[in-house]
Write a protein that binds this DNA or RNA. Sequence first.
DNA 1: TCCTTGGATTGACATTGGTCGATGCAATGT
DNA 2: ACATTGCATCGACCAATGTCAATCCAAGGA
Lengths: 126, 126
Amino acid sequence: MTFTQTLPLTDISRGVAYGQADAACSSPSARAAIAPERADSLARSLKALADPARLRIISIVAAHADAEACVCDLTDQLTLSQPTISHHLKVLVDAGFLTRVKRGTWSYYSMVPGSLESVAGVLAAV
Amino acid sequence: MTFTQTLPLTDISRGVAYGQADAACSSPSARAAIAPERADSLARSLKALADPARLRIISIVAAHADAEACVCDLTDQLTLSQPTISHHLKVLVDAGFLTRVKRGTWSYYSMVPGSLESVAGVLAAV
DNA sequence: TCCTTGGATTGACATTGGTCGATGCAATGT
DNA sequence: ACATTGCATCGACCAATGTCAATCCAAGGA
């Protein structure tokens, strides 16, 4: 899988308006549509989130008192193998939603503050 | 593809807290994580949105003055074949983001009001 | 009636994505 | 030094997804 870092999305400007087709079926465009590169970027972020296991991972991490969870927390609650969970964690880290810190034998994952809200905001504004 | 109707998401309640593992690496959970069914539902909605072409389609439809666009508007602006665009439109309709109305030879697509904001809201609350 | 046109459906294809078993690796305990 | 433990990586497999050419269908227009 090739989820590259996409956040933050806030520095991607809107594209210019496209030429308005004057076909019979068309009505005028009130504002500019999203720029293709911006659509690509947002789609990459949404793809990283669009999986039940990854949403649950994010929720479990965010629900922890210190917003930090180790892989063992996740293997307990998700009925998935450890390699699969590790894979999903990598996807979320690569997409910029989680960060990883290793202490001793354990890896701890935490939310990147505002990353989820940023995507939600961009999405609502599309 | 099998995107079933998932919106609105607001009637899906949160699940109960999971048993807290008392392993050495764990910290206490401050609140309940998302329920698996809720994660499935949200993931289906996000999957429908997680494509650059579909995001652009939504944006083009929403940008129209009357929030309505026909397929010819989309084939003009997207470098995709007509069957592909028709396919993406079906995904968005099935997921509850667009509605279709046919007048004469043309099909017009409009946004389902609040559908995008609903997903964005649920996402930010995960 | 026939032809044209807008758009949906079908079928096929290549690519991507989710999953797991096996393995590797670093840190800790004995 | 050796065994154990927690977790990442690799390789393989199958299911799901995005794309298009070909086709079909309905609505108008000649």
